[in-house]
Write a protein that binds this DNA or RNA. Structure first.
Lengths: 167, 167, 167, 167
DNA sequence: TTTT
DNA sequence: TTTT
């Protein structure tokens, strides 16, 4: 039983196609990069300045399968999950931390694109969730150490999904 | 699968002891009256005016039992559920509507009184949430990464995912 | 100050065009009927049965104006507000209660239709939300850290906080 | 205006006393370390295994002051904010990222310790928690807005649980 | 009374 | 590093 609350609610757009892999047991795991667009008021100019926040989403179970099948780069989606920060060591042995939003059977996902194919919500509603054997993917989860992010300024608005995604 | 989102989050105090009854099938149903204290600014006086909002909560399943056992008049509690408006007829045959917050296996409840006995959260942990050897299950609590993750690169949740190492 | 939490989060579709009226002071008030689609598993047939829940939304302020202008019957929308139950008397003098979701400056609204014109979020960010030289203000959009944060240690939000560099 | 949703809701305990600093402009900024306790079911033993997740909270504005004054190591608190990941460079010039929960004027904070001194919610209502004036209809914080409100008074505050509970 |  |  949880003795606390740890909840994240996001609506945003995918920065790239989802990546789905399967565990040795055949359980699907899908990784998403999600952009939420916000803005803040510049105190000097009084103008609203756009800001894009990028989130790492990791999905498990049936919801992971549905996301892998129906979501695509640019898809708008509602996500409910929980925060989790993982500790790891980089090549130099230094402690590093990565924060992700975990979407599992306790989470929820809703496609918000009319074009989109389908939607899936969990939380008791996804019984059985039978899984087949599974393609064994390669790595793909490991975000390449993070140094690939050599942008020169603000991450681009989500409108342009051809740009690099920060971190 | 839901094609929408319907979520209510409340923190408040019970106005009376909970009332638990059982269905013909022996399933517990607990009713609560919950008060949330708020305030608004009076536009004439500029003063903050307190306001109490009362909510009807209906709980099902294990969460209903826990609430019936441990909550009491005055208990402070966190509740997550969904809105539901029921239609009924009064004595004169007129249509009437009552809006309740439903807390079932998809909801959550957290006791916030130190005095209080215990807390209960659902969503996977609740009885009935088949989880045994089933493939999907573990995903929910995916112990990927964690302090013990002493690898030299990014943690690979998928691998650890099938392991049994606590975190 | 609130001593409780009273939050509602909905994603659904309008059952009819919004209705906007104005108070004696000229403040806009918009009423919406919102449908959230859900489903539950019939315990006898094991089938998922669709269910539509209808919600009464009442919006105030700028958000009411935007909703009145851009939302239409069928529009998909994200709404964040609070529950409020109003007491009134019907013709026979009987007490009646109506539960609504209030969306004011503390709430939020997001249009989720690509067709739709615009989106509006409140919570201090709305235009007119006086923020000028006031000390507190900027905190709201605190551009602490970000790409330009080229320090050699952890980012120090407080320093950047007074800067004007976007992020 | 935000075109997305980025919301975090946490209930947990402080791992240490809050640290409050002030910007050059005199704006308070408070940092918290918050632990949320969860648990997952070990698939081999079937036992629930506890898990603690740690979160970095950064507060701005009045809420930062209140937190600095009243919260202490061990305090239980409800927090609503948004996710933000900051990029910075470590001593070796490597890109690093830190994810924080920002609690500003759009966020909320509620102390959940009875011992605790006070609570503070933002979102327009903030300053001057003075009480007194009489209820007045309409307006941004519209107490049961609408002409149909023919009640005989506001419902009683939750403090007195011996009073009748409305409807 | 909506939507996919 | 918290809490029950």
């Amino acid at each position: 039983m949880a003795r606390g609350v740890n909840k994240v609610i996001l609506i945003g757009n995918l920065g790239a196609d989802p990546e789905t892999r399967y565990t040795a047991n055949g359980n699907p795991v899908t990784n998403l990069r999600l952009a939420t667009d916000e803005s803040y008021k510049d105190r000097n100019t009084g103008q609203m300045v756009p800001r894009t926040e990028w989130h790492r989403i990791v999905m498990f179970g049936k919801i992971a399968e549905v996301a892998g099948q129906y979501l695509r780069k640019g898809s708008k989606v509602y996500i409910e999950g929980r925060l989790q920060t993982n500790k790891w060591q980089d090549q130099s042995g230094q402690d590093r931390y990565t924060t992700e939003i975990i979407v599992d059977i306790n989470g929820q996902m809703q496609m918000l694109d009319s074009r989109g194919g389908d939607s899936a919500g969990t939380g008791g509603g996804a019984p059985g969730a039978a899984q087949g054997g599974a393609p064994q993917g390669g790595g793909g989860y490991a975000p390449q150490g993070g140094d690939q992010n050599q942008g020169t300024g603000m991450p681009d608005p989500v409108d342009d999904f051809d740009d690099d995604i920060p971190f």
